[in-house]
Design a protein around this nucleic acid. Structure first.
Lengths: 126, 126, 126, 126
DNA sequence: GTGGTCTAGACCACA
DNA sequence: GTGGTCTAGACCACA
């Protein structure tokens, strides 16, 4: 289900976080679905259990998943997105970086809009 | 001219790179303009000279600036945008992350489009 | 009667202990009242029997309840409050933590006093 | 400065967190003060660096401290306490536990109030 | 030198 | 079996 690239400069635990969120958004992971246990997941991804645990803990802090004592980890039922100013600024900064980098690759507003549409198509499939 | 935040989780050298590129895009820095030397800049920003050097090297590698021996560092004259597949993928991944994170803050396609327009307004002012 | 939240970070057995004590304090459970058996309780709460057993053992150790062989488990008749130094220190540490955490939420002495009054009101209703 | 008890059932990283917060409240640690580096602290406490790092990261997440790239970790300048409903509930639950446990040690409202006053005296010295 | 990430592996509380 | 904590130790990016 998840696709980890240990060579990437992006930390493995962040890759796990991003991909779980992506799968939730795509509907591949539904509220109430059980995630593989830390141990199972670490075997699946051939990654250290601590690394998986770190990703799960962060996802739990963001309330995307819930841990039920002794039973395992589940996609959260009522995940209420929370906009705080900081997070918003962070996302805006990221988007600004996209614009600047795109500019230096010769991509303008239209091309980014197109990419955006394309990404939504990818994420909403299901 | 540059605005460095040592508290940010974003590395200082990346902040320098981003802001130089931003200033070029805004027209605040014009082709041929001279950049402060590594030493001057490191004094201006109260930042380690190695950090400035690293930023300059990366900017030069991307051909955004040029160093002329004995004369200094200048904004490149004929900066030809170059799209390579890797960079393109990188930008797309960044944008995808924006979409996913936005989704979890309750922001949809429209809001991202609006943010995009807003960012272009900010960057094109000049 | 008891209200267990398996999502809580507080262990289930502790939740049981706290709530039994709370109910005794409120007078909902009276000396001599019979508690459901471990099995009954575990069914009622849809919780692992071992978990209930652990809670009962701890309550018994603290002499809040008594098990009479073959008859069942009962709220203790003559529960004599016992202050030992360790327990006292524990409670003080807990209260200190309350003070520190409150401080970092902008709550001072007055607000804690008010909360305390409120909690007594809740616990003494009966 | 910190006093760790490795035998305590309270995790070491939590002990570190609590005690740093306590020292800030007491004024022993002032805004802008530098904390020992992760490595220094781990030597001081004869504790694994990872454990210290975990504590520091949590303190940073709560905005009690700040990391400045390559320079070290500092007590935050403008720590604005933030009350969110969950945290508040958490503190109230803790206080409720104090009340219940105190009750079973024969300590009533007055005694808790007295303990509270005593704790404030301890924390405000300076 | 500084913190961040990761692995390997142990031990424990809880269910 | 499940996740949480901790140690020991390596490697890396950054300043």
């Amino acid at each position: 289900m998840l696709n980890i690239d240990p060579r990437s400069s992006k930390p493995i635990y962040e890759q796990i976080i991003e991909q779980v969120k992506e799968n939730i958004m795509k509907g591949i992971l539904q509220p109430g679905d059980r995630l593989p246990s830390v141990r199972e997941m670490s075997t699946l991804l051939t990654v250290n259990p601590n690394t998986v645990a770190k990703a799960y803990q962060e996802l739990e802090r963001e309330k995307a998943i819930e841990t039920i004592r002794g039973k395992g980890t589940f996609i959260a039922q009522n995940y209420q997105p929370q906009r705080d100013k900081e997070k918003l600024q962070e996302v805006r900064d990221l988007l600004k970086k996209v614009v600047i980098e795109s500019h230096y690759m010769g991509l303008g507003r239209e091309e980014i809009m197109a990419m955006l549409v394309d990404i939504y198509r990818e994420l909403e499939k299901r």
